[in-house]
Design a protein around this nucleic acid. Structure first.
Length: 919
DNA sequence: AATAGAACTTAGGAAAGGTGTT
DNA sequence: AACACCTTTCCTAAGTTCTATT
């Protein structure tokens, strides 16, 4: 935007983009170009050679302590150091900031930062992986319960249903075929693609691009498509295609026609008719993503619905009327008031919201009281959103309480409205569109300490939306009275529509769904690339081991970063701007994020993507330890970059030299899938399906931990845990009673095996008493309920109710129980039931024992899993063919581990991997 | 060479949906 | 039939990477 040399603090970028004077170099202290021998030796001296063997990939040593007492995370970006004295140094606390409207103002950011930071520290420890050295795997999983519940019987039913459905579909398809053989024909054509237009896309691109990002619809200079495409009749379907599936626009039949050869034998049956098995075809070179593209555009959110006149914001106790635009913004805040404390209680969120709210209120005419007099809204503290909150909360409740039928009707209405947008036709194939809904306005929910969190995310107008569509295809109608920003025909990209969001200026896209062939292909390519890395990894590792000792600082830093990325699955770590949350990855690690402890322990503690904290203590290679020490040496301090001579670009460029397409993120995919394979390889085909599923999840968890995929503890976790704990104790209590019964029958048993009859330390007397009372109470309730039911029945049959005295009589039974317990407590003996034998009792004890153990494992598992998110790795990192392999090899139904959407997304994997597949 | 832009993948939380229980 | 609890899907923010521009 501006010359990189003299961009000190003054340039006030015309575009209103970030203008911070520090935008150029933020490395802070930069280490010398080479590592001198003396430095090397010095480090060696301080650190007598320790030889640490390779540590396992998914390092087992994990965080020891949160290390949160450490220095201020704040110092960040001391960027402008006194050293560069020729530069007009901006006083630290008073730097230029520019608001989105381009108005610059001095901001005292030391103040601004300090307050929230204190808070942050208090809030941060949320979800820290607390781990100790751990090598074991857990043998069970929280899913167990769920699993058990899915009885085999039910499964049968499910399966049958699915089969029938499939058959029906197939039949349906068959019919369709007969009616419209064109579809089938066209499908075949896809097989091979015109060779000769490989040069086309590039040209197309050039034409299409230019004019910074928004490509204008080319008039008729240079047709993008050489041939027929342009001529196709505009598809009629758009409005007509209410029952979507069937009608294929006539257009696409022509799409690739020209070739009439068919290979009839590849007609697949049994499968869904329209299956496009791209994974069985030759690879496309990827330079162009489609030849023809038809779709119906996007769905805009409904217009704002004003609040009822009696629902108002109160300012200083007085209800005020706001301009509609401002009311909407107030409504966003009010609606989340008690719902989303992470936001509404975050000072930064509040401040940003309030600023935008004030601005819009003022610019739209200001707030007025009932008398119509202007009210100046000055402070947030005087704003009372309760009424607004109540209004929206009530709405939510009402919605929830709607009758089943009404809910259904509502959904049907919505569905039919959206139906035209669900699918598009790409190269004539029907493909699912992903996010066709334009993002609604709201308050920006930036995560962590995002500087802009809480700002007003404005409504997107059609005038901001650019449509990408095949040339000749019918252009979707913009909403009445509006027009599109532009309509382009760019076959080199996959998006159907795009717009720019107002908060960060980020570009948003409407793209195809994960189940689409486009996404599937690139997903497939991603995993293939990771597998390709296998062939190079040895060399790469050998090289960086060597380069860890390189004299050139850049090389040494690069090697060290590669080590970290390879071993600990760190992200690349691009530079981030002043206006984004302060999070880091490998290359952007700073001084304060890494602490060293002799002989070779390294503790990472930083906020990564999504401001998720990464805490991990690991043992590293001696040379790595030494290097980190060098990178942290002397003038460096908090806020300085560790890898001051390395950028993600440098790193990726280097990686490219090993293998085309290799970049830092590939290591994450590679390591995740590799780890999964290793974990699965440990399993043998024993146990029930449920047990195997649990093992699978344990393997999955190992990967999730490697990747630091966390989740917040769910609301109910604590109570649910306590409840289970209680249940467990109850079982232990019953076990104890059983044992006492045994003794009652055969007192001398105790001598033979005193341990067996020893008291259980987990349940103390007090608890037992409480529990007994609870049991008695349960008994009472049961009796009462039964009584009530009987009465109801009697009344219904026109007979007389039972007397209350009858109930009393029955309740005596519970009194008996109470008495019995008391007796037991006193004597320490438990009367066995009739017919009990020592053997039977012992057997019961054993059974209970098993149940107890299962529950305990399950609990431990749940506890350990409470902060680990398995889904992310399953969805993005673990090659799905590993899962398919696992299921086939161990006879685990795939549905057990892949929910429907994953089965759809990974169809390519499901159909291409067998029980012997290897990553 | 640096930086901005563009396009796409990855991510956690919220909402929705399903299921067993009462 | 309402609930509580858990899983799945939706939403959109937040990364990475590659390309275009200055």
């Amino acid at each position: 935007m501006y010359p990189s040399s003299s961009d000190d603090d003054k340039p006030l970028a015309r575009n209103g983009n970030r203008t911070n004077g520090t935008a150029h170099k933020k490395n802070g202290i930069v280490l010398p170009e080479t590592v001198s021998d003396s430095v090397d030796r010095q480090m060696d001296a301080e650190q007598m050679d320790i030889d640490v063997e390779d540590i396992p990939l998914a390092s087992l040593v994990k965080d020891v302590s949160p290390a949160q007492s450490r220095g201020k995370r704040k110092a960040r970006k001391p960027a402008i150091k006194a050293q560069e004295s020729d530069e007009e140094v901006v006083p630290k606390g008073k730097r230029q900031k520019v608001t989105t409207n381009g108005k610059a103002k001095a901001v005292d950011d030391s103040d601004e930062d300090d307050i929230p930071l204190a808070k942050q520290r208090a809030a941060a420890p949320k979800r820290v992986t607390k781990t100790v050295v751990t090598t074991e795997n857990y043998s069970t999983d929280s899913d167990e319960l769920m699993v058990k519940k899915l009885t085999a019987e039910k499964h049968e039913i499910e399966k049958k249903a699915e089969e029938t459905a499939k058959k029906l579909r197939a039949e349906d398809a068959q019919k369709k075929k007969n009616v419209a053989p064109a579809a089938a024909a066209k499908r075949k054509i896809m097989k091979k693609e015109p060779e000769s237009d490989s040069d086309l896309p590039i040209k197309a691109k050039r034409v299409a691009k230019k004019t910074n990002g928004v490509k204008k619809e080319e008039s008729d200079d240079e047709p993008l498509f050489k041939k027929p495409a342009a001529k196709r009749a505009a598809p009629k379907k758009t409005t007509a295609s209410v029952k979507g599936e069937e009608q294929k626009p006539a257009a696409k039949t022509k799409g690739g026609k020209t070739k009439e050869e068919e290979s009839p034998q590849e007609e697949e049956e049994g499968e869904d008719d329209d299956e496009f098995k791209w994974w069985e075809m030759e690879k496309n070179d990827g330079s162009t993503k489609w030849k023809t593209l038809e779709h119906n555009g996007v769905v805009f959110p409904p217009p704002y619905e004003p609040l009822p006149v009696n629902v108002k914001l109160k300012y200083d106790g007085v209800p005020v009327t706001l301009p509609l635009e401002a009311e909407e913004v107030a409504g966003f805040f009010g609606a989340m008031l008690h719902n989303s404390p992470v936001n509404t209680e975050n000072p930064r969120f509040v401040a940003n919201f309030f600023k935008d709210f004030q601005d819009i209120t003022r610019s739209k005419g200001g707030a007025k009281n009932v008398a119509g007099k202007k009210v100046d809204i000055k402070t947030f503290e005087k704003c009372d959103f309760e009424d607004i909150w109540n209004y929206y909360e009530q709405k939510r409740i009402d919605k929830k309480n709607m009758s089943q039928a009404d809910k259904k009707a509502l959904k049907a209405e919505r569905d039919s409205l959206e139906e035209p947008y669900l699918y598009c036709y790409l190269d004539g194939r029907k493909e699912k569109v992903g996010n066709f809904r334009i993002e609604p306005p709201g308050l920006f929910r930036g995560r962590g300490e995002h500087p802009k969190t809480g700002m007003f995310k404005t409504r997107v107008q059609p005038e901001q939306v650019t449509i990408n569509i095949g040339k000749g295809a019918k252009i979707p109608e913009p909403p009445e009275g509006h027009k599109w920003a532009a309509v382009v025909h760019d076959p080199t990209v996959t998006w159907l529509a795009t717009w720019k969001e107002n908060i960060n200026g980020n570009i948003k896209y409407v793209m195809l769904a994960a189940t689409s062939s486009l996404k599937g292909m690139s997903d497939f390519a991603k995993f293939e690339k990771a597998r390709e890395l296998k062939k190079h990894i040895d060399k790469i590792r050998k090289d960086y081991e060597k380069e860890l000792r390189d004299r050139l600082m850049e090389v040494r830093q690069r090697a060290t970063a590669m080590y970290l990325i390879d071993r600990f699955a760190l992200r690349a770590g691009n530079e981030k701007g002043e206006e984004e949350a302060d999070t880091v990855g490998c290359c952007s690690l700073r001084f304060e994020h890494v602490t060293l402890e002799l002989p070779n322990k390294v503790t990472f503690d930083f906020l990564g993507k999504d401001s998720i904290r990464y805490v991990n203590t690991v043992a590293v290679d001696a040379q790595v330890f030494k290097n980190l020490k060098i990178f942290k040496k002397e003038p460096k301090r908090d806020g300085d970059k560790l890898f001051d001579r390395l950028t993600t670009g440098d790193l990726n460029k280097h990686l490219q030299s090993y293998m085309p397409g290799l970049s830092a993120k590939v290591f994450r995919t590679y390591n995740a899938s590799w780890t999964m394979q290793q974990e699965l390889a440990k399993l043998d085909n024993t146990g029930t399906v449920a047990e195997k599923q649990v093992q699978y999840n344990a393997a999955n968890r190992a990967v999730a931990i490697l990747c630091n995929h966390q989740r917040s503890v769910t609301k109910g976790h604590e109570t649910s845990m306590e409840r289970t704990e209680n249940r467990l104790k109850g079982m232990k209590y019953q076990k104890m009673r059983l044992k006492k019964m045994m003794l009652a029958l055969e007192p001398k048993l105790k001598k033979n095996d005193p341990e067996f009859f020893a008291a259980d330390p987990d349940i103390d007397e007090e608890w037992i008493k409480e529990h007994q009372e609870w049991l008695v109470q349960q008994e009472r309730e049961k009796i009462e309920k039964k009584f009530k039911k009987e009465n109801e029945k009697l009344v219904a049959e026109g007979e007389k109710e039972l007397k209350a005295s009858m109930l009393k009589e029955r309740l005596k039974e519970s009194d008996e129980l109470s008495k019995k317990f008391k007796q037991e407590n006193k004597t320490g003996k438990v009367e066995p039931g009739k017919g009990a034998t020592v053997e039977k009792l012992e057997n019961n004890v054993k059974k209970l024992e098993e149940r107890i153990q299962a529950l305990e494992v399950q609990m431990r598992d749940k506890e350990d899993n409470k902060t680990v998110a398995l889904g992310t790795s399953k969805l993005n990192y673990i090659d799905p063919r590993l899962t398919v392999m696992f299921c086939k090899k161990f006879d685990v139904p795939l549905e057990r581990v892949f929910p429907k959407t994953l089965r759809e997304k990974f169809k390519w994997a499901i159909e291409s991997a067998d029980e012997n597949w290897e990553f």
